[in-house]
Computed example of a mutant assay.
Amino acid sequence: MTRLLLLRHSEVASHRGDVPITDDGVRIATEAGARLGAREAGPIRIVSGETRRARETAAAIAAGARGCGAAVVEDGVAFALRNPDLYLAGVRVDMVSSAERFAVQVPGFDEADVRKVRFFDDWLTVPDRVGWWVAHQDPPGDTAAAVATRIRAFAGSFADRPDRAGLVVAVTHSPVLRACALALTGTDPGEPAWVSGLQAQVHDDRSVTMELLPEAP
């Protein structure tokens, strides 16, 4: 059986663009990796989403685990760990926090064009954007249920590996974790702490059992 940790990236100063994690973020992720490395007897496989914050968190976790003598396999980017897919004028756009950052993703668009689209105008207005998306029944792209289904299929696929590591660490984003938590418990728990999230047990038949982690591993 494979154990999969689905973790939020570490601390960032803002979500305005593809930003790095902070110095404290590096420390938080390194310490989490050290704790994992100190208690895991077998190899640790580490994957992440494609954003800079996810990749840097994965690298810091790997460094911390190696520093405690763990065997670490860094497997790069896993497409399934991306943020939810949203579409604006036929373009897949990242979840960002300003009309300007949406507009630069769509050729020929400006901030006023973004604001004309009800979903994105509302997204930029509500205080808890991710929570609003989680509860939204008809976003222009992935629903929370669709993301949870994606992650469950991703987790189950680790049963296919002939070299299955005992532990897989997957660094992702808060919308992904909140969608999975909603599917698991029926309640959106709100923003997870840095480098915390869910744990999944992946069985030989590809079935997956998930539970919330109360804190960073």
Rank of each mutant, 00 (worst) to 15 (best):
A34W: 06
A34G: 05
A34L: 00
L36A: 01
G37N: 02
G37R: 00
A38W: 05
A38L: 04
A38D: 11
R39N: 04
A41C: 10
A41I: 11
A41H: 11
G42W: 15
G42A: 14
I44D: 09
I44K: 04
R45Q: 10
R45T: 05
R45L: 02
V47F: 01
V47C: 04
S48Y: 06
S48H: 12
S48A: 15
S48N: 09
G49D: 15
G49N: 04
E50A: 10
E50R: 10
T51H: 05
T51N: 01
R52K: 14
R52I: 11
R53T: 01
A54Q: 13
R55S: 01
E56I: 00
E56V: 00
E56A: 05
T57F: 05
A58V: 02
A59T: 02
A59C: 03
A60Y: 08
I61D: 01
A63V: 10
G64F: 05
G64N: 08
A65G: 04
A65H: 12
R66Q: 13
R66S: 11
R66P: 13
R66G: 09
G67P: 12
G67T: 14
C68I: 00
C68F: 09
C68M: 13
C68P: 15
C68Q: 13
G69Q: 09
G69L: 13
